[in-house]
């Protein structure tokens, strides 16, 4: 049966619209917005981070779908250009993506390496409390608490390098202290607590040496 409207010249043929699948980057940006709204880490987050992380990681593993290291890097760049309304969740979310990917890769006997250069842009709380990290290099970044609590609460980290003036010294120092402490006491949580204090003092001594406040 022919279409009676075929005789009309002005009617355009149906358009073939390609339905494109949502890219991982778009999906991760959308998820970030949702999680920023849903999960809030209060101001006294120091004491609540463990529970918060459990909840956040559960949500990410359920909803993030598949992604790779490049997507995390792109996501970090993309989010660094827009203001966050919940900076802690945003920073921890990116850390969660990296941690869950690292954990997944470990099961396949692969290591995960990520380098991020933010070109002096601000990204407070980036990788906050990221649980599992193989190699992470963050350079040219501004903001409070970047990389705080990485590998804390029974996490694991091989090389952590917040690239800066004192990073090689700091890295060496962390390793020395880690080894020293492990020899004396195997409790990882206590060791991290100890390291936080020692790192701060170490930084201060370097700052004083260089005549900076």
């Amino acid at each position: 049966m022919t279409n009676p409207f075929d005789k009309l010249k002005g009617i355009l043929p149906p358009r073939e619209i390609k339905t494109s699948e949502e890219s991982p980057l778009e999906r991760l940006i959308k998820l970030n917005r949702e999680l920023e709204r849903e999960i809030v880490l209060p101001d006294d987050w120091y004491f609540k981070i463990h529970k918060f992380r459990l909840n956040l990681y559960e949500q990410i593993s359920k909803r993030a779908g598949s992604y790779d290291v490049q997507d995390i890097s792109n996501l970090t760049t993309a989010l660094s250009f827009e203001e966050s309304k919940n900076q802690r969740t945003r920073g921890a979310y990116i850390g969660g993506l990296l941690s869950l990917l690292t954990e997944k890769n470990h099961k396949l006997n692969k290591t995960t390496s990520l380098e991020i250069d933010l070109k002096r842009r601000e990204f407070p709380y980036l990788f906050l409390a990221c649980k599992y990290v193989d190699t992470l290099k963050i350079s040219n970044i501004k903001g409070d608490y970047v990389g705080s609590w990485i590998a804390d609460y029974n996490g694991k980290c091989d090389i952590l390098d917040k690239e800066g003036k004192y990073s090689p010294q700091l890295k060496q120092f962390i390793e020395e202290q880690r080894q020293k402490y492990i020899k004396h006491n195997g409790n990882i949580k206590k060791m991290n607590m100890f390291l936080n204090k020692e790192i701060k003092e170490f930084y201060m001594s370097i700052m004083e040496k260089n005549g900076k406040n």
Partner: peptide, 18 residues
């Protein structure tokens, strides 16, 4: 690697532009 999208996400497009 460029994602084609007509979204109005500033950060997304800036990352793509990069």
């Amino acid at each position: 690697k460029i994602v084609v999208a007509d979204s109005q996400e500033y950060g997304f497009h800036t990352a793509q532009l990069k």
